[in-house]
Design a protein around this nucleic acid. Structure first.
Lengths: 175, 175
DNA sequence: TATATTTGTAAGTGATTACTCACTATGACA
DNA sequence: TGTCATAGTGAGTAATCACTTACAAATATA
């Protein structure tokens, strides 16, 4: 991975996350990366290849993040870590861009990929089981859906105060 | 409102909701509406004017939908109607396209417009107050966030079974 | 019926798109 | 040192973009 290759990836991640994938031109990516446009196609074949490289890079980081939760045995800690996962990662700039891109891409390309979060979902089901919730599957699903909603508000609503809302949810789940 | 004008609006709503606003070309809208491209600009001035017309038309329908909930006095019915609002409207094709466009536009243009749903939010706060929930504001907000998450899954995840999830939520809220 | 206004079309406009191609610069290894 | 692969550039390409313009058809008004 050369220096310019990384510059292209960083520029593309930022632009795709902020403006959107389809509407961001390769010329704009090249300009922001201070690189000739042709170099993008040399390294990543085409625009889609550039997106793939970004997503693959990001998936690694996501797996690391999920692993910490899935390996947890205490049920309350599983739920707590799941709830706090969002805020913590989102502080970091490039990490934030990656998660924003994940959601933006879902709406742009209309593919949800529920299987990506399956391990996390199962960890939550087990956690709610241990805590004797009557319907652990539905409960886990609801929490995942709630987190999608939280992410949406966090990224799109400037006014939204996510910390207070998450503190409330901790109280609700007796954490 | 001429016949061709309505044809343009219908075609644009469908294409904007399915492909996205920015990436849908005016020539494609014209082709789907079986109309010359120039007519779009005659009637709606520019592409943005076309989007505005669609959104304004849809806001009327949204207000009608919200009014039915906001005017309700029984707190449990307010929560119930809010939960079921989604599924009912989404059955109808053009209504479904309108709601999908609402969400898609949020991500494409990055403007959340929380004030649009303010009346609904306040109705929920009052409902949770009446039911003696300890933190009605947070509770109402959580429900709204949950609904955003539900909508996201409904529109993007083919596998997602929304009815079961909503029945579960009814049980959780003792409805 | 004569005139004015609105509705509609088709063929343009320059700008921008993703991508290619011919070329040069750099560095590793024989 | 000479050769070869990789890294990088900049000027091209046809296609498509939102939008305009000149003109015709249809409709309303006098």
């Amino acid at each position: 991975m050369t220096e310019k290759q990384e510059k292209i990836l960083t520029a593309a991640l930022e632009l795709f996350a902020q403006e959107g994938y389809k509407v961001t031109s390769t010329s704009k990516v090249a300009r922001q990366a201070a690189v000739s446009e042709g170099l993008i196609f040399r390294h990543f074949k085409n625009k889609e290849g550039l997106l793939d490289a970004i997503m693959k890079e990001g998936e690694k980081r996501a797996k690391l993040l999920f692993a910490d939760i899935v390996l947890e045995t205490d049920p309350k800690t599983v739920i707590l870590k799941t709830l706090e996962m969002g805020i913590k990662t989102v502080q970091n700039q490039s990490e934030s861009n990656f998660w924003k891109l994940q959601y933006k891409i879902k709406w742009e390309l209309e593919e949800y990929n529920a299987h990506k979060v399956e391990p996390l979902l199962y960890a939550l089901v087990r956690a709610f089981e241990k805590l004797n919730y009557p319907e652990p599957e539905f409960e886990a699903n609801s929490l995942m859906i709630l987190i999608d909603g939280l992410a949406m508000r966090y990224f799109l609503d400037q006014q939204f105060e996510i910390d207070g809302q998450i503190e409330f949810l901790k109280r609700k789940y007796n954490l």
